[in-house]
């Protein structure tokens, strides 16, 4: 399978702190690739590098064979790489519907239009209605995002991402803080999206059951480096991973 997204020896220093020391990673098109590792392993920093929020100290990000390291985040979004956030990151005083509609609008060509009401652009509204329903927020479209309970905010977070119809979805702990009974529902939704349109998903997740069940490939990060990589079975059997991550987790 074709490699859609590649991290090539990425390194990111913050002053004296090395958040990501040396990460190389190849994500195959259409795969679900998980990144696991203890807190502070550099997973979120890696996402910030891939989505252009941070520029790496050294190394490159390659998307569909093209070096996108120097591209600003909004350009990377337009190229087809979208992300969600570990800490809910929505537009608090806009309605749920408007949160999602804006994300659909962002991908269109009408953003500079000043002289027509946004509601007249049906395609974005239609897409937003569809997505709001898809992520399970039907009937809550008119609520302000800020008043949603945590679980619904996580769904909205995903809805904002889906509305822009990215090719590659960077999901940073999509189930973080969710009630455990809601987790399978969200993962089913992610699986559905993936099957529907052959998306590539790069997933950061702490829930090992989830990761082991759904991933095609897993990369284990530890102190800013790649500790191991492989299929769930290979990674699960890896001694180093047991010691550094799984062992530490269950100490």
């Amino acid at each position: 399978m074709e490699i859609i997204l590649e991290a090539d020896h990425l390194r990111k220093d913050f002053g004296g702190l090395i958040a990501v020391e040396d990460v190389s990673l190849k994500v195959r098109a259409g795969s679900l690739h998980s990144i696991i590792g203890p807190n502070g392993a550099g997973k979120t920093t890696l996402f910030n590098l891939l989505s252009g929020v941070f520029k790496p100290t050294t190394g490159r990000v390659i998307y569909r064979g093209r070096d996108i390291t120097a591209q600003p985040p909004h350009r990377i979004a337009h190229l087809g790489i979208g992300r969600s956030y570990q800490i809910t990151n929505v537009f608090p005083n806009l309605s749920v519907f408007e949160n999602v509609r804006l994300s659909a609008q962002a991908m269109g060509r009408d953003n500079w239009n000043l002289f027509a009401p946004a509601s007249r652009f049906k395609k974005y509204a239609d897409r937003a209605h569809h997505i709001v329903e898809q992520v399970g927020l039907k009937g809550k479209g008119d609520l302000l995002a800020s008043v949603l309970p945590h679980g619904d905010k996580r769904k909205l977070e995903l809805g904002i991402l889906l509305a822009s119809d990215p090719q590659v979805l960077l999901l940073d702990e999509p189930t973080a803080g969710m009630a455990s009974e809601q987790v399978p529902q969200l993962m089913a939704l992610i699986a559905e999206v993936r099957k529907e349109s052959n998306k590539t998903i790069l997933l950061v997740e702490h829930n090992m059951d989830v990761v082991m069940n759904v991933s095609d490939a897993i990369t284990v990060m530890h102190y800013g480096k790649v500790l191991a990589e492989g299929t769930p079975v290979q990674v699960g059997a890896n001694d180093q991973v047991q010691k550094a991550y799984l062992g530490e987790l269950y100490k």
Binding site: S51, V53, P73, A77, L94, L102, M107, L114, I160
Partner: peptide, 23 residues
């Protein structure tokens, strides 16, 4: 109320997220 005006509102509410969804 225009598409541009809605982008302004997005910036007011959360500029980092507005950038990340492609504005």
């Amino acid at each position: 109320d225009s598409p541009s005006g809605r982008v302004w509102a997005a910036i007011r509410e959360n500029e980092a997220r507005a950038t990340s969804i492609g504005f």
